[in-house]
Structure formats: C-alpha cells, structure tokens
Amino acid sequence: MYDVTIIGAGPAGISASLYTKRANLNTLVLYNDKSGLEKAEKIENYYGFENGIDGESLYNTGISQTKKLGVEIKKEEVLKIEIAENGFEVTTTKNTYTSKTVIIATGNKKNMPKIKGIKEFEGKGVSYCAICDGFFYRGKDVAVLGNGNYAISETNDLINLAKQITILTNGKEVPSIRAENVKVIPKEIREVRGEERVEEIEFEDNSKLKIDGIFIAEGTAGTKEFAKKLGILTNGDKIIINEKMETNIPGIYACGDCTGGLLQISKAVYEGATAGLEVIKYLKNKRRKEK
C-alpha cells in the first residue's frame, strides 16, 4: 500500500511528490495526458528563469527531478478512484493501487463535449457516473459517449444493468468491445433531445436513436469525473479545498489548476507543496491515533 498516490505530473503534483518523498513516504505519481504546462510556449513570469523557459522543458525537468529523488512515477491512465478500507483504490488501465491518501492534481482540462442538449439535461438523463447512476437505467436503453479506455470502463459498469448500450463515438475511431448488449454507432451527433428528460439522440445524417439516458465518457477521466464519483464538493468544475488543500473527504487533497483561482505555475507549486506537507501531517496523526 502506498502512503500517497498523486494523480497528475504537472507543477502541483510533482511539487507535492518532492515533499512527501523527502519525508520518506511511499509515493506514487500517476500521469497520462499532456499537462497544461506542456502547451505553454514560453514562460517568462516564473521565478528564476531570466531568459524564460518553454513549458515542455519545465514539465519534463519536473518529472526527471522527482524520478531522481526515487519517486515511483508511472504513465498510466487513471480510470477511477474509490474509497476502500483504510484508504483508497486507484484503478488505471493496467493496475489497481491501494493508497492511504490521494492528491488530485489533474489540471483544468475539460471533457465537456460541445453537443447541444448535454448541459441542459444534466441529471435528467445525462450522467457522468455509471457506477452512481446505472441503477436508474436498469433494463433500459442507454448510450455512452466516448471511444477511449474510460468509455469502455463506464460501459462495463453498465453491462449488467442496462438492456442495450450504444457507444457513440461522435465521428471518432471505433473502440473494440464485445458484449451481447453493446453496439457502436460512429456517426456524428447533432443534438441530445427530449421534453422533461433525455429521449433521443439526433445524428448529423438526420437519423435518430431512442435512449433513456446518456453517460458522458469522452477522452480520459479528469477532475470532474473523479469528483463526481467520490462525492468531492465542487464549485462548477473546480474542487473546493480549504487552506490545507483538503477536500471534504478526509485523506483526499487537491492542488493546482483543478482547484481554480490563478492558473499559474507559482500557485500550483505552492498548493502542491502545501498538499504534500499536509499529507505528511495527516499520516503522522493517523499513526499516532492508531497506536
């Protein structure tokens, strides 16, 4: 079991790992997607770089710095975080890890698809969590929007509940999945429609599909998906934290762009450092209580 699992390898996640590893905590960093930092062409307002630095170099240096310190860092897509006995379970496409604490540093990348009707029908047939809401679609026809590992994972959570599952790739590549009640429609989507609740999907070629619900699972799971599934309080898509970077769930911390505010490296580094230090204190207190 890890003492701390950090999700995200940008300035917030890496800073947190530098502190937890130096305090001898068994630290795991998981990352997958490109960090927001990598996209920054040139950073000229960060302390210590008089000629500026490009985002990709800074990002890669951060990763190599934490590796050098001996932090275990793995490029694996995180599918879900769940509460388990004495901590948490973090499932990736390759493994399941158990950890006493989790630091979410997943940035502010949004998965929100720009399809008409999705926002409007949130909670009225549009869902972001198969494991939480699948119950309401027992014996019904549902769609899963997406085509990656996360969409497959959501589909698997619905297979034994829903009558028919249609994976909608919205024009993207068709994933490979075989199950009796799963089919794939690769057509582009025009609109999600209904009266009081979701009733049908209309495609760009004017064809329609009757459904009772649609689960949004485009791209990889991120801040919003993890928060919804765990029950972390958010303000919009931003995780609500206190000055210790604690979320409403004891043992789960958040830092960096995923908590909103200034989208700056300096702020992410500060929050990452704080989260790391607070995890150290939290585990120390926990050990003391257990004695």
């Binding site: 909670g123 869902s127 969590c129 809401d133 309401f136 309080l233 609500i240 409403n248």
Partner: peptide
C-alpha cells in the same frame, strides 16, 4: 420527482419541489 442520479437533494415548499441539487452539494 425525476431523480436519475444520486445523491439528489430536493427542497420542498408547500408540498412542491422548489429547488433540486444533483450530486454532492455544500
């Protein structure tokens, strides 16, 4: 009451749903 996601919080006033929160809320 069209609850399709839980937790959902509904505030009733005079027997009618007045405000609905879907998902954990503060």
């Amino acid at each position: 009451y069209n609850v399709m996601s839980i937790p959902t919080i509904i505030i009733f006033k005079d027997g009618k749903p007045y405000k609905k929160f879907v998902g954990v809320t503060s």
